[in-house]
């Protein structure tokens, strides 16, 4: 391969990482499912979620209706939180609650600056910080079941000059998501700009990994007597899932499994949910 063509390929890749995953998967406006949801959230109807990891005797988990943030929490929104709660600023957060990389994309305690966009998803936040933010806005982090349930919805294609709007589901959706997971990190686009799904939730895929309330509940053996190490090794990772071909979901569970609550990671952010009490 010539040097030039290699450089071109790299350029293509960088462009792909920067721009929304599929040009055609930009959100259709406005989302149709907002219903009675608070601003910035959409309604997710209740139903049943079939857990990815099979447990004897549990075929499905009931999901109560809930509201979910349309997009991940942004740097700007998180700055508002830190300003109002300076104990969560970079220099004051205790080591037990966030690693040293906490908010390292920011210029300083109360200045985003640097390479981070104000409207890009906030990353390098620990679970403790995400949890505190959610409480501050009177919301909470989604459970794994809620997150995965919302993520099951097909993705929407917006109409473009060359094609009509529609949805992507099944194999095509899986391939699209897997292709994103397979790429190294790129610069983060503004939150809420890619991969809107049928509920109107955006960038569950294509931007960042997201914290869940019970991220540390991925325990494969159901016997409390067993050494309940969360495990993604050859045997444990590939046995007892509802679909061993769903590599994208494997990856999300592996990622959650690799985390501790104080961790801060460059491509890990979060969004909130709220109870639908009606």
């Amino acid at each position: 391969m010539s040097h030039a063509s290699f450089a071109r390929s790299v350029a293509v890749l960088l462009a792909a990482a920067w721009f929304p995953l599929y040009a055609g998967a930009q959100p259709a406006h406005p989302p149709v499912h907002t219903g009675r949801a608070p601003a910035g959230m959409v309604s997710i109807p209740g139903g049943y979620y079939r857990p990815f990891y099979i447990t004897k005797g549990i075929d499905s988990v009931k999901i109560e209706p809930f509201f979910m943030d349309v997009r991940a929490v942004t740097n700007k929104e998180f700055l508002n939180f830190v300003t109002a709660n300076p104990q969560w600023s970079r220099s004051r957060v205790p080591a037990s609650l966030a690693e040293r990389g906490y908010l390292r994309q920011w210029k300083s305690d109360f200045v985003i600056g640097g390479v981070a966009l104000e409207n890009a998803p906030v990353v390098n936040v620990s679970w403790f910080a995400a949890h505190a933010y959610a409480a501050w806005v009177h919301k909470r982090l989604p459970t794994i079941a809620e997150w995965e349930y919302a993520a099951l919805a097909p993705l929407r294609w917006a109409a473009t000059p060359s094609r009509r709007s529609g949805t992507i589901d099944g194999e095509a959706k899986r391939e699209l998501i897997l292709a994103w997971y397979a790429r190294p990190n790129g610069p983060l686009a503004p939150a809420g700009t890619v991969n809107e799904n049928a509920y109107g939730v955006r960038d569950l895929f294509g931007e960042v990994w997201e914290w869940t309330q019970d991220f540390n509940s991925v325990i494969i053996p159901a016997d409390p007597r067993g050494e309940a190490n969360p495990s993604s090794t050859c045997g444990a990772g590939a046995i007892g899932t509802i679909d061993p071909g769903d590599y994208a979901t494997f990856m999300r569970f592996a990622m959650r499994n690799s985390l501790l609550a104080a961790y801060t990671v460059d491509n890990l952010g979060f969004r909130c949910v709220a109870e639908d009490r009606n």
């Binding site: 190490n229 495990s231 990622m255 990671v265 491509n267």
Partner: peptide, 27 residues
């Protein structure tokens, strides 16, 4: 990195060959 990774060395005598002990999040 986007992914967590680990290493199973077939030279290891022990369950998982080091895979669980080395399972590592980005950063």
């Amino acid at each position: 990195s986007k992914m967590p990774h680990s290493i199973d060395l077939h030279a290891v005598s022990g369950p998982g060959g080091g895979a669980e002990a080395s399972f590592t999040a980005p950063g």
